[in-house]
Amino acid sequence: MILYTTLAIGGIGLICGSALALAARFLAVHEDPRVEELTAILPGVNCGGCGYAGCGDYAKAVVLDGIEITLCAPGGAETLANMAAFMGVEAESGEKQVAIVLCGGDSDQAPRQFQYNGVADCTAAHAVGGGDKKCRYGCLGYSSCARACPVGAIEITEKNLAVVHPELCISCGKCVRTCPRHLIKMVPESRHAHVMCSSKDKGPIVKKACKVGCIGCRICTKQVEDDAITMDGFLAIVNYDKPIESATVAPKCPGKCIVDTDPPPAPVEEEKVEAEV
C-alpha cells in the first residue's frame, strides 16, 4: 500500500518535473541580458517616478529604446554613475532633490470654512465647493500625496497638514503630480529656506484665511541678493538655483511664512507613518 502510494506520488512528481524542465528549455523567452543587469543596478523601489511601470520597464526602455539614463531620481548620483559606466555613456548628476509641501497652514493657523462631508481625498474635496479650507490655495490634508508616496515619506500631521520627511524622500515626484493644489515642489536637499505658502491672493485676503500666509510685503526680496527671492504677484518665490542665507531671511518675514528647515524635523517613528497611510 505504502509502496504504491510512494510510487504514484513520486511518478507524478517526476513527470511534472520533466515537463517543467522541457518547458524551460524550449519555451524560454530570450531577453537582452543587459536589461536584467541594468535592472539590478537600479534601486528597485518601483516608484514609477521615471514615467515607466517600474525599474525593469525603465531598464528595458534604456537598453532597447535608448531612453536617457538620467530619469531615475531615487537612485541619486551613485546609481547614475553606475548606469553611465554600464551603458558606456557620460552623465552629470545634479544634487538630490526632495519634495516639500509649500504650505504651513495647519488647523491652528488656517481655519476651515465649512464641514466637508465626502470622500477623504484631496482631489475630491477640492472639487466640492472649492475645498473646505478658507485659503483656496492651502493644503487640504486629505492625504492624497501620502497615499501616492511609494515610501511613506509624507506624514499628515495631527493638525491636518502634509509634511514631507526629506530624509525618507526618494525624489520620485509622484506627490508633485498628485496634489490638486500644486503645493508640492522638488527642491535641492541642501536648501533650508522656503516660503511655506502658495497663496496668490492679496494680503488682506491671506490674513483672513491663514496666520502664516505670504502677504506679499516684499520684505524678503530686499534681504537677499541677486533676485534669490522674487515676487509672483502677491507671492514670494524662492529661486532655488541662487544662494540664500536661511538664518537671516527667515526671522525677518512678518507673515512668518519663510521657515528655516535647518536642522530638519525629527524623523517620525515607523509606526506613525504607517498609521497615517
Binding site: T123, A124, A127, V128
Partner: peptide, 13 residues
C-alpha cells in the same frame, strides 16, 4: 456611500 462623488472622481481621473 458617497457613490456620486466616486463616479465624479473616476470621470475626472
Amino acid at each position: 456611500r458617497p457613490l456620486v462623488q466616486h463616479m465624479k472622481q473616476a470621470k475626472a481621473g
